[in-house]
Every structure is written in structure tokens, then in C-alpha cells.
């Protein structure tokens, strides 16, 4: 067991060091979310009721879009500089490696976003109940974004013209999350219980956590063929 712990530890240390050396790349998606959220009141008018109604959807969609932008970082550099192939020939269990890398990605790209949420909530005039619900849904939902995103990135990493295809693959599979998350927040806005939605999102999280690392490690192997 100690060896799998040291593998996870090593991979995470490496990825975290890299993330903090490239801070600019981390900050950009956050600024993107902030700007998208700023665009909406300018586009649809500043009426507080309207913003409160569409706010949760806006924040979730902005989170998905910004997530898509930073997703590639997960495996792109490793693929191009040959780190992936060295990991594969080291005989390390790739499922563990993938899981560790996904967790790192979530930690550095979505956790800051969750911390930023109260500010966005103020911008869009969300009530306190809604803000809490929004943060909980992001906490449960964004790891799923990272995991599904990892599958997409691993599948497209070898493509010279990856670009938009990643979004094309991923947006449809993100839909259930968006539906349940926004509906939970809507319930919260009416002071209704929203545990059922959270439970479903939790189920999706567990299902994805069980399958995604396997799919990612297989996709990374295929990318080397």
C-alpha cells in the first residue's frame, strides 16, 4: 500500500509544483468567469429579480465554459514532452496516476472558483440560501466536470487540431449536472428542501469516480498507439 501512496504523493507533488509555477494559466479561467458574469447584467439588463432568476444558471454555465478552457492543461504538456510515455513504461498503475492528476486539476482550477462564488452571487443578487446551495452544488458537481473532462482531454490529447472538439465532446455529457444543480438552487430560492437533487448529483459523482480513472488511463494508452 505504501507504494501506491507514494505514487499518488509523487504525482500530486509534481502537478502542484507545476501549477504554482504557471500561476497565470490558473488565474485566466477565474478572470474569464468573472467577465462572463459581468457580461450578463450588461446584456439582459440590471433588473435584480431577473438576475436572481437566471443567476445560478449563468454561474454554472460560466463554470463549465471556464473549466473547458483550462481542461487541456491536465495532460497536454505531459503528452508533448513525453512524460506520459515515461509514466506508461514505468509500470505504475495508470488508474491511480489518472485519479491523482484529476484531483490535482480540481484542486487548482475549481476550488478557487468555489471560493470566488460568494462574490459572483453578490453580483447577480442571489439570496444567502441560494448562495449556499450554489456552493454546495459546485462542490459536488465540479469534480465530475474534472473527471469527465479528463476523459475528453485524454482522448483528444494527441490531436494536432484539438481545439473545439473537446467542448463538442464534453458539453452534452455535462447537461445532467447543469440541470440538477440549477434546480437545486431554484428549490433553495423558494426555501424548499433540495436534498434530492444533491443526492442525485452525489450518485453521479460516485459513478463517475468509479469509471472515469479507468477510462482516462485507457485513453492515455490509446493516445500512445
Amino acid at each position: 500500500m505504501s507504494s501506491s501512496f507514494s505514487i499518488i504523493n509523487g504525482v500530486m507533488r509534481r502537478d502542484l509544483i507545476l501549477a504554482f509555477r504557471q500561476k497565470a494559466e490558473l488565474a485566466q479561467p477565474l478572470m474569464f468567469v468573472l467577465m462572463v458574469v459581468t457580461l450578463f447584467p450588461l446584456g439582459v439588463g440590471p433588473s435584480p429579480e431577473l438576475l436572481q432568476r437566471i443567476g445560478p444558471g449563468i454561474i454554472w454555465i460560466a463554470a463549465i465554459l471556464s473549466g473547458l478552457m483550462g481542461m487541456e492543461r491536465m495532460f497536454r504538456d505531459d503528452y508533448h514532452d513525453g512524460s506520459t510515455e515515461q509514466m506508461l513504461v514505468s509500470g505504475m498503475p495508470m488508474v491511480l496516476v489518472s485519479a491523482a492528476k484529476i484531483f490535482c486539476h480540481w484542486l487548482v482550477s475549481f476550488v478557487p472558483l468555489i471560493i470566488l462564488t460568494p462574490l459572483l452571487a453578490v453580483f447577480l443578487n442571489l439570496t444567502w440560501d441560494m448562495t449556499v446551495a450554489l456552493m454546495i452544488t459546485l462542490l459536488i458537481g465540479t469534480p465530475v466536470l474534472s473527471m469527465l473532462g479528463a476523459i475528453g482531454v485524454a482522448l483528444t490529447v494527441g490531436l494536432r487540431k484539438g481545439g473545439l472538439i473537446l467542448s463538442l465532446l464534453l458539453i452534452p455529457v455535462f447537461i445532467p449536472l447543469l440541470i440538477f444543480a440549477t434546480s437545486a438552487i431554484e428549490s433553495a430560492s423558494m426555501r424548499l428542501p433540495y436534498l434530492p437533487q444533491l443526492a442525485i448529483m452525489g450518485a453521479i459523482l460516485l459513478l463517475t469516480a468509479a469509471l472515469a480513472p479507468v477510462a482516462v488511463s485507457y485513453a492515455l494508452k490509446v493516445s500512445q498507439h
Binding site: 507533488r13 509534481r14 507545476l18 509555477r21 514532452d81 513525453g82 510515455e85 515515461q86 505504475m92
Partner: peptide
């Protein structure tokens, strides 16, 4: 031991770090 065209070195990490992480991966 396989060494390919691609160096397997991350350009933002130092020589020491790259070597250390590689050694860690390979046990």
C-alpha cells in the same frame, strides 16, 4: 528502460526535479 524521441522532461521543472520525479515514478 525506454528512452524515446521525446525527452520526458517538463520544461518548467529543473533538472533535479525532473530526475527526482522520474526516479520516484520508476520506484
Amino acid at each position: 528502460l525506454y528512452i524515446g524521441h521525446k525527452s520526458g522532461l517538463n520544461s518548467a521543472l529543473t533538472g533535479i526535479e525532473n530526475t527526482q520525479f522520474w526516479a520516484n515514478q520508476h520506484g
